[in-house]
């Protein structure tokens, strides 16, 4: 399995332009931003001081990086990377070289594994750059950069970091499942991106689509379908992590708050997301297992 993973890593990273624009852009972009801000702070008096109205906390700034993968624009880039990874094999005609060398489920599994580790590596790197970048800027501005290191702070930070990273990872994985499914269905990178993007955009607004139907048919239960969508459950877990309460659906539509009371536990949301991932990856495996490689 290590050899298969190494092979996948070698070809994914070897596609330098794609991986550069769609993945390394995050840590490299962060580095660029901090270099720019650092130079500006050194060149202009009071520039650094004006940046910090409140002294920043390194714990918050490092953890905040994991909010990026849940951003739609960032998801679009990661969706592109997934589409290239899966549909690229069709477009380059390379499935015919590798399928006889390994079982199809393993070939798909290793793609998810490789993408997952690369995304995690990229954002961990970005969070380190952000943490160090703020350290340099606060030093220039001569403002405090807390909290002070202690066992309790580190323990709390490690827990929060892991939770936020896991949440971001699940979001990325669900996006990757959409993109991979679309890419394998369309056998084209562009098709995979377009259809995958369609899934990413439509899924959170399914609630909105069901609202008029539920009102017209007077079927309130129809609205509860939203509780089984990935976006709702990611938000619910996020709400539990941050505020220790279930989500109130305010991120969907204001009326939803009154229609669906916040009741779902973190375990419920984790189960729903796990089901989405298992079903999504399962569908991809079934599709690929039955697919004729004609190109």
């Amino acid at each position: 399995m290590w050899n298969l993973y190494h092979a996948e890593l070698q070809k994914t990273v070897g596609n330098r332009w794609v991986v550069g624009f769609l993945l390394w852009i995050f840590p490299v972009g962060a580095l660029g931003v901090f270099l720019f801000l650092g130079l500006m702070a050194l060149a202009m008096e009071n520039f650094a001081q004006n940046m910090f109205t409140d002294p920043p906390l390194w714990t918050d700034s490092v953890i905040a990086v994991w909010g990026f993968p849940t951003n739609t624009l960032v998801q679009m880039l990661l969706l592109g990377l997934t589409a290239v990874t899966f549909a690229g094999e069709y477009q380059w005609g390379t499935w015919k070289n590798i399928i006889p060398r390994h079982r199809r489920p393993a070939l798909i599994g290793v793609k998810f594994l490789t993408l997952g580790t690369l995304v995690v590596f990229s954002f961990v790197l970005m969070s380190i750059i952000v943490g160090l970048g703020f350290a340099v800027l606060t030093r220039i501005a001569d403002v405090p950069y807390g909290p002070a290191l202690s066992a309790a702070v580190l323990r709390q930070f490690a827990g929060d970091y892991a939770l936020n990273a896991a949440l971001a990872f699940i979001t990325v994985l669900i996006t990757a499942v959409y993109a991979a499914f679309a890419a394998m269905l369309m056998r084209s990178m562009v098709g995979g991106i377009v259809v995958g993007l369609g899934f990413v955009i439509i899924e959170p607004v399914t609630a909105f689509l069901f609202m008029p139907l539920a009102a017209w048919l007077e079927w309130d239960w129809l609205l509860h379908i939203v509780r089984f969508t990935p976006t709702y459950n990611v938000n619910n877990i996020s709400s539990w992590v941050r505020f220790d309460t279930p989500t109130n659906l305010s991120h969907f539509f204001f009326e939803m708050r009154n229609l669906i009371p916040p009741v779902d536990s973190m375990a419920f949301s984790l189960t729903v997301l796990a089901v989405w991932l298992v079903v999504g990856i399962g569908l991809i495996l079934v599709l690929f297992q039955r697919q004729d490689i004609t190109g």
């Binding site: 298969l4 190494h6 070698q10 070289n97 590798i98 390994h102 070939l107």
Partner: peptide, 16 residues
């Protein structure tokens, strides 16, 4: 894979 060298392509296939 057009973006890899001939040798790297063979390495990828051998590892696979």
């Amino acid at each position: 894979y057009p973006f890899l060298t001939g040798r790297k392509n063979l390495e990828v296939l051998a590892r696979t």
